[in-house]
Write a protein that binds this DNA or RNA. Structure first.
Length: 583
RNA sequence: GCCAGAAUAGCUCAGGGGUAGAGCAGCUCACUCGUAAUGAGCAGGUCAAGGGUUCGAAUCCCUUUUCUGGCUCCA
C-alpha cells in the first residue's frame, strides 16, 4: 500500500473511531448533545455537551463500551437524506441542526449509521466497525472547546483519542509521546538549570540562569556575527515610549489589548513596547535620507512586552516578555525584490546552522475582507517578490489567500524539529502602514521625495521560543558549540585534583566553557552527574594521564578514547566548535 | 479570558479530619576510589495564599493566585 493510501485508511479509521466514541458516550450519557468529531493528526476527537464534567475514570468506561461496539462488527451505512429529513432526524440535537441549517442549498446531506448510532456526516468511513481494532486506540485527554471555536458560544467537552491500524503502532505512538514528555523544555530547563519563571514576580516572564545565559550568548554571538557579515547594522532602542509613538504607529488603535497598561510620568502616558518597529523608524526619520543610503538593514535583539491571555502562557513558547531577533529593512522599490530574496536565504542559513533541515513556507496575501492599507500595485509587487524568493529557494509552500495582515503580505517559515513537530520561527513581512503613518521618505535620483518600502523580519522569531524549540530539538544534548558546559574534567581521585585543575584552566584559557569536578564523590558518580547534565566531553584524569600529559575522553554517548594527548583534544574540540558541528 | 484538573521539603513524589513522610539534592564526618549513584549522621515544611465548617483542617467547603491539558484541524 502506498503511503498516501495508508494515510487515507488511517483517517477513515480515526474518523470512524470518533463515531464509535460518540455512540459510547451517548450510551453512557443518554441525552448528551453531540457536536463534531473529525479525524486529526494521529487521532480524532469528538465534542459533546454533557450534563456533568467528564473524568478520567469515564474515559475507561467509554473505552470499554467502544470495544464492545467494535466487536459487534456493525456496518457503517451511508444514507442520503433531504434537508427536511435531516432536520427531523436530528430534531433533538441542536448542534447538528445548526450544522444542517448552515449547509449551502443543494448540498448533498448524508448520514452514517452503525447500528445504535446515526451521525450527520460527509464520510467516508470504514465499511464495518470490525475493521477497527479494539486494542489499537486510546482515549487520551479531556478538554474544553468552544462550539465552532467561538469564545462567545457554549463551551463543550472534547475527548481526544489516538487510533492506529494495529496495537504495535499504538504502542509506538504512545512511546513517542513519552519521549516528547522527556524532551519537554520545561522539564529539561529545570533539570539542566537553564531558566525559570516566577509566579510571584509575574507570569510569562523568563529568568535566564547562568547555563541558559551561556547558550543564549552563544546564539547571540553567532547571530550578530552573521548579521554584520550580511550587511546589517545593530541598533539599540528604549523599552518604553510615550503614547504619541503608539498613536502614530497605530498600535493604540489596533493592538491595545496586546499591550501592557500605560504608566504615567510627568503627565504623559508611557507604554512598554510590544514591537520594535516605531523606534527603528524614528532612527530613520532622524535625518533626511538619500537613495544612496538605502537599503538600511537595522537589526536589534529587542525585548518586547505583550499581554497574552493567562490561559495561553506556556513555558518559553508563549510568554509575556521576549526578545525578538528583529530587523527592519528600509529600501527603494527597485531594491525590494533582491532584499526579500536575500532575507529568505539568510533565514534558511540561520535555521540550518542550528540543525533544522525541513522547512515549509506560508505565503499570506492581501486580506479579502475588511480594511487594508497600501495601493494594490504595491501589494502585487510585494507578493510577487515573496513568491519569487520562495521559488528561488525551492521551498515547498502554501498560499494563505487573504491571510496577510492589513498592513502587508508576509512569508512565515515553519521548521520541523527532531520530533517531527512544526514550529513557526521566521517571518518576513511587508509594512505599508508605518511608512505612511510616520511619513517616511527618501530623496531619489530625480531629487524627488519618495516613500521607501519597510520590511519587517525575524529569523529565529523570539530568542525565548527559539531556545525552547532548541532544547526540545536536541533533547537537552546541545551540540558542543552551544553547550553551556563543553567539557567536564573529572579526576579519578583527589591526588589528581591538581592536574585536573591545570587541564581545566588550560582549556578555559583556550576559550572553552569548562567545569572541573573536585567534589569528594566517587568518579562513577561524577561521570553520572556529567552524563545527566548532557555535557558533551568528560575528561577523566588519573595517574596515567598525568604522566603522559594526556586526557581520557568520554563522550556523553558513552564512547571513550583513552590517552589522548592534551593538544590533540584541544584542537579536535576547537575544530568542532569552529565548524559548529551538530553532534 | 473560558472549560477541566493540579499545587505537600530545592527536585521527584507518597499520605489524607487527631504530632508532616520517603528518595534524591544540601550540610557534617569517614572512605581516596579508573568510565552512569561509597557509607553514616544532620538539617530541611504556615502542606500555594486568604476565608469558612469543626473540639481539632495539610485533608472538607468558598475565594484568589499560579501551573497543566485544551479552546487551530469544521458534519
Amino acid at each position: 500500500m502506498s503511503d498516501d493510501k495508508k494515510i487515507e485508511k488511517l483517517e477513515l479509521m480515526r474518523h470512524s473511531t470518533a463515531h464509535v466514541m460518540a455512540e459510547a458516550v451517548l450510551q453512557l450519557f443518554p441525552g448528551a448533545k453531540i457536536a463534531i468529531g473529525p479525524s486529526i493528526e494521529n487521532g480524532f476527537y469528538y465534542d459533546f455537551d454533557l450534563p456533568r464534567s467528564i473524568t478520567t475514570e469515564d474515559l475507561e468506561k467509554i473505552s470499554d463500551v467502544m470495544r464492545e461496539i467494535i466487536k459487534e462488527k456493525k456496518d457503517f451505512v451511508r444514507t442520503e437524506v433531504s434537508k427536511a429529513e435531516a432536520l427531523n432526524m436530528f430534531a433533538d440535537q441542536p448542534y447538528k441542526l445548526e450544522l444542517i441549517n448552515g449547509l449551502p442549498e443543494g448540498e448533498v446531506i448524508s448520514t452514517y449509521n452503525q447500528g445504535g448510532f446515526t451521525d450527520l456526516c460527509r464520510g467516508p468511513h470504514v465499511e464495518n466497525s470490525g475493521q477497527l481494532n479494539p486494542q489499537s486506540f486510546k482515549l487520551l485527554s479531556i478538554a474544553g472547546a468552544y462550539w465552532r471555536g467561538d469564545e462567545s458560544r457554549p463551551m463543550l467537552q472534547r475527548i481526544y483519542g489516538t487510533a492506529w491500524t494495529n496495537p504495535k503502532d499504538l504502542r509506538m505512538h504512545l512511546q513517542h509521546l513519552e519521549e516528547m514528555e522527556k524532551r519537554d523544555h520545561r522539564k529539561l530547563g529545570k533539570e539542566l538549570d537553564l531558566f525559570s519563571l516566577h509566579e510571584e514576580a509575574g507570569p510569562g516572564l523568563v529568568y535566564w540562569h547562568p547555563k541558559g545565559a551561556r547558550i543564549r550568548l552563544a546564539i547571540e554571538d553567532f547571530w550578530r556575527k552573521e548579521h554584520y557579515k550580511n550587511g546589517y547594522e545593530m541598533v539599540y532602542t528604549p523599552h518604553v515610549g510615550k503614547a504619541w509613538l503608539w498613536e502614530t504607529s497605530g498600535h493604540l488603535d489596533f493592538y491595545k489589548e496586546g499591550m501592557f497598561n500605560s504608566m504615567e510620568m510627568d503627565a504623559s502616558d508611557y507604554y512598554a513596547k510590544p514591537m520594535n518597529c516605531p523606534f527603528h523608524i524614528l532612527i530613520y526619520n532622524n535625518t533626511k535620507r538619500s537613495y544612496r543610503e538605502l537599503p538600511c538593514r537595522w537589526a536589534e535583539l529587542g525585548t518586547v512586552y505583550r499581554y497574552e491571555k493567562s490561559g495561553v502562557l506556556h513555558g518559553l513558547m508563549r510568554v509575556r516578555g521576549f526578545t525578538q531577533d528583529d530587523a527592519h529593512i528600509i529600501c527603494t522599490p527597485e531594491q525590494m525584490a533582491d532584499e526579500i530574496s536575500e532575507t529568505l536565504r539568510f533565514s534558511l542559513f540561520m535555521l540550518r546552522s542550528f540543525g533544522f533541515t525541513e522547512f515549509k513556507a506560508y505565503l499570506a496575501t492581501k486580506p479579502t475582507s475588511g480594511k487594508s492599507v497600501g495601493e494594490q500595485s504595491k501589494w502585487d509587487a510585494a507578493i510577487e517578490s515573496l513568491r519569487a524568493a520562495i521559488e528561488k529557494e525551492g521551498l515547498e509552500y502554501d498560499v494563505d489567500e487573504g491571510g496577510g495582515a492589513f498592513y502587508g503580505p508576509k512569508i512565515d517559515l515553519k521548521i520541523k524539529d527532531a520530533m517531527g513537530r512544526a514550529w513557526q520561527l521566521s517571518t518576513i513581512q511587508f509594512d505599508f502602514n508605518l511608512p505612511e503613518r510616520f511619513k517616511m521618505t527618501f530623496v531619489d535620483h530625480d531629487g524627488k521625495e519618495k516613500q521607501p518600502y519597510v520590511i519587517h523580519r525575524a529569523l529565529l522569531g523570539s530568542i525565548e521560543r527559539f531556545f525552547g524549540v532548541l532544547i526540545e530539538h536536541f533533547g537537552g544534548a546541545f551540540p558542543v558549540w552551544l553547550s553551556p558546559v563543553q567539557v567536564c574534567v573529572i579526576p579519578v581521585a583527589a591526588p589528581f585534583d591538581d592536574y585536573a585543575k591545570k587541564v581545566a584552566s588550560d582549556l578555559k584559557e583556550a576559550g572553552l566553557r569548562v567545569e572541573v569536578d573536585l567534589s569528594d564523590l566517587r568518579m562513577n558518580a561524577k561521570i553520572r552527574n556529567a552524563q545527566n547534565q548532557k555535557i558533551p566531553y568528560m575528561l577523566i584524569i588519573g595517574e596515567k594521564e598525568e604522566e603522559e600529559k594526556a586526557v581520557s575522553v568520554r563522550l556523553r554517548t558513552g564512547k571513550q578514547t583513552n590517552g589522548v594527548p592534551f593538544a590533540d583534544f584541544l584542537s579536535m574540540i576547537n575544530e568542532k566548535i569552529e565548524k559548529q558541528e551538530l553532534i
